[in-house]
Design a protein around this nucleic acid. Structure first.
Length: 572
RNA sequence: CGGGGCGUAGCGCAGCCUGGUUAGCGCGCCUGCCUUGGGAGCAGGAGGUCGGAGGUUCGAAUCCUCUCGCCCCGACCA
């Protein structure tokens, strides 16, 4: 492509609306423009980068036995009522009525549509397993869209859905998708990690998130230094605590006037937070529950939600605490508490600890579980800390930041049950499909790639995702010899199948260098006024390597290097 | 939805507090000259319902009310 003919409006200054680096660079480099909040137009280079991702995704999905189709974006409300999500999904689902007052919505995801399609057309175990996917624009009316392509309301997603005859088949399909995802992100040239994840509101039994590692990521990943265990912060667990065998001391009431905070109580009583248990009141779907965790630990609300089965879990306000327990906040304790009590498993391993006394200005010392109180349930209910160790191998954890770009779920039969999607098995019996779903944020990957790979001058595209592999700069446009050499080089590169952006604009060298850096193509070839004398092409990679090549044979060498780098991303 | 902030040329901003005659600056854009290895220089030029509506006033970008849009901080998710 000739730069002179390309719509590539680069910006010298940072747009005020862009906070994060990928958003800033995508705007500055002329990849995207905002239409309205969370909705972007993809300009030619932005689209080219997206196409690179899509193609890798398609190749690997097809290789894994999935078939591409394209489902409608507008979906009827009936389907969502059938699955129960019309009521459950909330305002993120953009709803509207058509001219006949038929209720409809824009698809934020396509479980209903695909389940409907399959139940209407697949009736036999002989047609299973079936794995279908699409690459499509999704719309979710996000509460707060932000960070450009990172969290738009409209975004491009690959979503896939599998249908198996039984659990065992679904497990195999899940594993296949897991492997395909590993290949996809490797081929994108990104540093990433698959982590165990909470299944969240989509439901299901098992789930992995694929995270692109970047300091600016919104999610925290807990990764083991010793083995390949990794999980997101909501899911991560440490080792099972071991109970010390110590003599139980006698329960003792102590006055702690005005000491509400953990730190205040500890310094007042001369203990450390490890010897104190705090009692937190949460509102789980309108019902109060109490949670016990060690003084220096934090309740993980997602774990609590899973234990209680509640959709919404939040910390109670001081007024709510008082109303439900009759105890002022700060002095709550598990002894004689009148709301359902859950304990983090760590608490059960502790002995002779301090808790709130169940009345103002009183705490209890030498409290012991089993003797002084008995929780309704014990579970891992807290967020892991740096002090925790890997549950698999006992090694230390690293906490790193990541951007979620893929998520795979074993769905089970929740949708097929709700929507009566059934087939006949070998014995002629009706069975429901066992489903899985598999998402990849295609447009988000482009943002994540930039977030992970950039410097002060601009983007640094991983080769497989670069909209062009090579930038060819003609710095002496009026020199006929140089221009002729550039033109030929441009043609030869294209003929060799290398996408090249030929900067043939009548601009000063500085502008061409700056734009090339900003766009971040992997290879930059420069021909200037020195060329007729030297006969050499100056090559510089966007990561800083530079060398020169003789004009003749340069295309072959570049082509080989590129082929070699691409092959490396494909290797197992 | 709660909290904070911003809407003035394609982009970045000043002007507003303390109302006043033609609304400014930098970048970008157009023309010409000149220049050509890291966002040059000179000269000329185009481009604005000051987000919108209403009000106060002799007079509103500026003050008041309402409204729309956008951005940032918290609860969702690819």
């Amino acid at each position: 492509m000739r730069y002179s003919e390309l719509l590539l409006p680069t910006l010298k200054e940072n747009p005020a609306e862009a906070e994060v680096v990928s958003h800033r660079l995508l705007l500055r480099a002329g990849f995207i423009r905002k239409l309205t909040s969370g909705v972007y137009s993809y300009l030619p280079l932005g689209l080219a980068a997206i196409r690179r991702v899509e193609n890798i995704v398609r190749e690997e999905m097809n290789r894994a036995g999935a078939q591409e189709l394209l489902l409608p974006m507008v979906q009827p409300a009936e389907l969502w009522r059938e699955s129960g999500r019309w009521a459950k999904y909330g305002p993120e689902l953009l709803r509207f009525s058509d001219r006949h007052q038929r209720e409809s919505c824009l698809g934020p995801t396509h479980e209903e549509v695909i389940t409907d399609l399959v139940r209407m057309n697949v009736h036999s175990y002989r047609d299973l397993p079936l794995n279908l996917y699409q690459v499509q624009t999704k719309f979710r009316d996000e509460i707060r869209p932000r960070f450009g392509l990172m969290r738009g309301r409209e975004f491009i997603m690959k979503d896939g859905y599998s249908f198996d005859a039984d659990e065992a088949g679904a497990e195999i399909t899940y594993k296949k998708m897991y492997d395909a995802y590993q290949r996809i992100f490797k081929r994108c040239g990104l540093k990433f990690r698959a982590v165990e994840a909470d299944t969240g509101s989509i439901g299901g039994s098992f789930s992995h998130e694929f995270m692109v590692l970047a300091d600016t990521g919104e999610d925290t990943i807990v990764a083991c230094r010793g083995c390949d265990y990794a999980a997101n912060l909501e899911k991560a667990a440490g080792t099972e605590p071991e109970k010390d065998d110590v003599a139980l001391l006698e329960l003792e009431k102590v006055a702690t006037p005005g000491k509400k905070k953990v730190d205040d109580v500890c310094s007042f009583l001369g203990i450390t937070p490890e010897n104190l248990v705090k009692t937190m009141i949460y509102i789980a779907d309108d019902a109060p529950v109490a949670v016990l965790v060690r003084g220096d630990h934090e309740v993980q609300e997602v774990k609590l939600a899973n234990l209680t089965g509640a959709v919404d879990v939040r910390l109670a306000t001081d007024d709510e605490i008082n109303a439900h327990t009759g105890v002022p906040a700060g002095f709550l304790g598990p002894v004689d508490l009148n709301v359902p009590l859950y304990a983090d498993r760590e608490v059960m391993a502790m002995a002779n600890f301090v808790v709130g006394g169940g009345a103002a200005d009183i705490h209890l010392k030498n409290v012991n579980p089993g003797r002084d109180f008995t929780p309704e349930a014990v579970a891992d209910l807290r967020t892991v800390t740096v002090a925790d160790r890997c549950p698999r191998c006992g090694a230390e954890f690293d906490f790193v930041r990541g951007i979620e770009v893929g998520h795979i779920f074993k769905l089970g039969t929740s949708y097929s049950d709700a929507m009566k999607a059934r087939f006949l098995d070998r014995d002629g019996r009706e069975q429901v499909f066992v489903m899985g779903c598999y998402g990849i944020g295609v447009s988000r990957i482009v943002a994540a790639a930039i977030e992970q790979n950039h410097d002060d001058d601009g983007m640094i595209f991983p080769l497989p995702l670069a909209p062009f592999k090579v930038a060819l700069l003609n710095l002496a446009l009026k020199d006929e010899e140089v221009t002729a050499a550039c033109e030929k080089l441009y043609d030869d590169l294209e003929a060799a199948g290398i996408e090249v952006l030929y900067d043939d604009r009548n601009e000063r060298p500085g502008i061409k260098f700056k734009d090339a850096d900003l766009i971040g193509l992997p290879y930059r070839l420069v021909l200037g006024k020195k060329f007729p004398e030297s006969g050499g092409i100056e090559v510089r990679t966007r990561r800083g390597e530079s060398f020169s090549l003789p004009y003749d044979g340069a295309v072959k060498i570049i082509a080989e290097r590129i082929a070699g780098e691409l092959a490396a991303t494909m290797a197992d």
